[in-house]
Amino acid sequence: MIRIQSLEKHYQKLHVLKSINLSVEPSKITAIVGPNSAGKSTLIKSILGLVFPDRGDISINGERVNGRWDYRRKIGYMPQLARFPENLTLKELLALVRDLRHHPDDTDMELFEVFNLGKEWDKPIRTLSGGTRQKVSAVIAFLFRPSILILDEPTAGLDPIASSNLKDKILKERDLGKTFILTSHIMSELEELSEHIVFLLEGKIFFEGLTDELVRYTGERNLERAIATLMKGRPVWTELQKS
């Protein structure tokens, strides 16, 4: 379980996260959605320790993580844009991350096989396409069987087949008890994947709850419309909060 308490973050004058309180349930997929610059990435990066919050606590399984780094052993991360040292080959890149993790015996190469990355094995990263890099990034996120996976726009840039492969993998791992936090702009995707949704607007959590719930309350047909309604009309929102 990931707990976030009264998290505050400013970028200079910009108030990016405003007293965020959030609990991420274990063995569930939690989606963080919101318009651009709502603070999604900042929130994710705070959990990862890439961004230092001004105030507030983040704890994983009851342990405070602020300023530490060893907890990242438990986390797999897929950034929005995956770029790696250009001169390394795929083989060397994987060797590098394995080396950084002290060569665990039990790694998860399932995605590697599914994506058929074997044929890129000896190519330098700089020759790989954006989609392929994204695949590599996904492989690395799952590689060490982390108990928590944080995926920032995981399917962006992937072709439909790879995209569905990745989604299958996510669901499969969820069923095995992994905790997921993910962001996406593709609402249908979130509908398919996440049971929990956190809606972030201007640095505040406007909704946190079950996806179905959100759709139901807004009275819309699907998540995309529900979210759109949220973004447009505050009244619904206040109503929602009352309930």
Partner: peptide, 16 residues
């Protein structure tokens, strides 16, 4: 140039 690489490293269990 190494920014992305640094980010990759930062997401791994390694101190800054």
């Amino acid at each position: 140039h190494s920014r992305e690489f640094i980010e990759l490293l930062l997401s791994q269990p390694i101190g800054r």
